[in-house]
Structures are given as C-alpha cells and as structure tokens.
Design a protein around this nucleic acid. Structure first.
Length: 237
DNA sequence: CGCCAGGCCGTGT
DNA sequence: ACACGGCATGGC
C-alpha cells in the first residue's frame, strides 16, 4: 500500500473537499430551479460567465420561453436572440432545440422519462447530442436528472494537476476527463452511496468556487483554503 | 484595452 | 488520441 508517509491521491482529494466545505459552506447549486432551467443553464454556461447566463435565462423568462412548450413554440432566430448575452448563440441555440427534439421524439417530451433511463445509456444518448460534451452531459445527469455521477471541469483539472494528485500534465481530452472522474469516485468511495448525489453536487460546486477565486489560468494560490495541502508537494515547478 | 468565463467541435498531425 | 483555433458576448 503506497509504502509511504503520504495519503493516497483519493484520500487527499476527499480531505480537500472537507476543507473546502468548511471554508465555503453549502453552495446550494440549483436548489430551487426546475430541471429544465438547470439543463438550459448547463448549455448556456459553456465557457461563459454565470452572470451572462442569468441574463439569458431572464430573457427567456420574460419571453415566456422558460418551459418546454415555450421553447417548442420559439423560432430558432428568436431563441438565438434571447440567449445572445451568454455567447456562442449560433451553436447553443440549435443545440437546445436539438435537446427538445430528442426529448419529444424519444421520451414523449417527458423529462421524467428521460431521467428514468439507466445512467450509462442515458449518458451515451446525451453525449450524442450536438453541443453536449462530457462535462455538460454529467452536469445534466447530476444536477437536472439527479443521477449520482461526478462532474469534472477545468478547475478540477488544474487543482488535481497543481496538487500533483495525478502526475502532470493532465490532458484536456477525454482520457484526462475520465481520470478525474475515476479519482473523484475513489475519493468518495468510503462515503455511503446514498449520499453520493449530494456529495458530487457539492464537490463540483465547491471546485468552481475555489477555482474562480484561486485557480485561474494564471495561478493565484495565495489565500487558497487548499494551500495547506501543498505541503505534500515536494517539487513545485 | 486585454483577459477570461461553470466547453464543444472540426481539422490537422 | 491529443493539440489547436474558432465560436460570441459581457464583466472586470
């Protein structure tokens, strides 16, 4: 067993989550929103500040388009204009339309039926949609459809890399993403399975919180709640 | 003004 | 199976 004085990467990650939970408290991500709003948020927030997403969602609400029926009766050009504040509208608008079409054609227009699909086939179906990559698929699975799956993102990639939980570099590709997911699963492996959905929810939300504050593209680690973990690192490059 | 944001996709290697 | 650039807009 890792012959050393140092806890496993998974245990370190679990401890880091505890430290973040203590430092930042409950993040209550998407507590009161409907599953559809969560899904729209997942599309709109791709490489986009959440502030801008809120503006788009407000536009949709004002246009009575923040519902499945509202979206169905909305033309593509109108949808594009309403979500313009969050950017990439020429990609995101058709992608959202494609999601609704998939829901109507394969799940009788029912998010409940979609959610009732087993996790693995469901994840593959979401990934096959335009504009849905691994992170968006997992975010929809976890936050909208309530499946207990980890969500990895660029912040977690940087955190794991900079704390040397995985020997760098950690790829931006599919392989790197899955290695982050596996590490996260292992980190929470000793927690009761019934708590995983709630834990993965907080985990990703806390990673975003600490990432925004302390783990940007150019490191700004001073004052980071995770800085004590850095004592495990020998060669900081 | 420049950098970056809760990524994804097509192309080239 | 990556790395890279494009995609759009707005906050700071």
């Amino acid at each position: 067993m890792n012959s050393g004085l140092q806890p496993s990467p998974a245990k370190r990650l679990r401890a880091m989550h505890g430290a973040l939970a203590k430092a930042y408290g409950p993040q209550h991500w998407w507590p009161a929103e409907t599953p559809l709003e969560v899904i729209l948020g997942a599309y709109l927030t791709q490489n986009t500040a959440w502030k801008a997403v809120e503006r788009s969602l407000a536009n949709l609400r004002d246009a009575e388009a923040l519902s499945l029926d509202g979206l169905r009766s909305l033309g593509l050009a109108d949808l594009r204009n309403l979500i313009r504040p969050s950017g990439f509208h020429t990609r995101k608008a058709p992608a959202i339309k494609a999601f609704v079409a998939m829901l109507d054609e394969e799940f009788s227009g029912s998010l409940e039926m979609l959610a009732a699909t087993p996790t693995e086939p469901l994840r593959r179906r979401l990934l096959a949609l335009p504009g849905v990559g691994q992170e968006t698929a997992d975010a929809i699975l976890l936050y909208a459809l309530r499946h207990p799956v980890p969500v990895a993102d660029e912040y977690l990639r940087r955190i794991v890399e900079r704390h040397r939980l995985i020997s760098p570099p950690v790829d931006h590709g599919r392989r790197g993403y899955q290695s982050l997911v596996r590490l996260t699963r292992e980190a929470f492996g000793s927690d009761p399975p019934g708590l995983h959905e709630r834990l993965f929810n907080e985990f990703h939300a806390l990673n975003v919180a600490v990432g925004k504050a302390h783990c940007g593209r150019t490191a700004r680690c001073t004052g980071c709640p995770l800085s004590s973990d850095l004592e495990w690192i020998s060669g900081q490059e």
